[in-house]
Design a protein around this nucleic acid. Sequence first.
DNA 1: TGTATATTTGAGCAAACATTCAGATAGAGG
DNA 2: CCTCTATCTGAATGTTTGCTCAAATATACA
Lengths: 119, 119
Amino acid sequence: MREEREDRCGSRVIHRDLVEAAKDSALSAGEREGLADLFKALGDGSRLQILWALTQRELCVCDLAAALGASESAVSHQLRLLRSLRLVANRREGVVLYYRLADEHVARLIRLALEHVRE
Amino acid sequence: MREEREDRCGSRVIHRDLVEAAKDSALSAGEREGLADLFKALGDGSRLQILWALTQRELCVCDLAAALGASESAVSHQLRLLRSLRLVANRREGVVLYYRLADEHVARLIRLALEHVRE
DNA sequence: TGTATATTTGAGCAAACATTCAGATAGAGG
DNA sequence: CCTCTATCTGAATGTTTGCTCAAATATACA
């Protein structure tokens, strides 16, 4: 069961062919970073609440803050992050900025994840 | 456009009805935490590589470490996190532990997210 | 029983992060 | 031009997180 052992360079490998196969089909650095940034953005309770609220309808910053029970500054910081990843977009009406989801992907991701969370 | 203004308790609200609607359909605390934990687990390059490799076939710890170019200790720590969230499961064969995805949800989440990342 | 191997564990540390606070913009209306 | 309001921004802070290193398990095998 140990025919393919190797030990040089301090990195132990039991199944060399499987390691090579895994490396071949690995995510590219760009894909990895893009995925990590996307999931990181979703991996926070406040941002999840923001995005979930925006699933229903567009909302302005202070309504979002009121709905979450968070400060407007905190919400604004989060929205900036979400905007930089193009997960949300906004529309100005006078002094008020209305935020909405930039596309359907995020909503689908959250709904799919909810299925898993609910077992 | 400002008929529903309110200002008490320092929390400004422009559209009171929309805020109430958002609160009504908000995620429960449990859902929020479950989702955040799940997405947080996916929001890391190393864990993504591990999970992506496991979408193809089960692998043991040191092969995973070799495929990622990471230390076995680091991989083991990540696997413990993933195991605690029931995202991966393992099978022992002698001294060697083979890890696999616990179910199809994670793979589907990553594939869906990849679609978004690839624009 | 003793050694070797695969993996786990815990402490410690540096980097990344979320929130707060105070102050800066930017549009609306007088 | 001045003020008000909605939002943004940057610095500071306390917390979380991912890694490393050293040491502990656990199983196989002599």
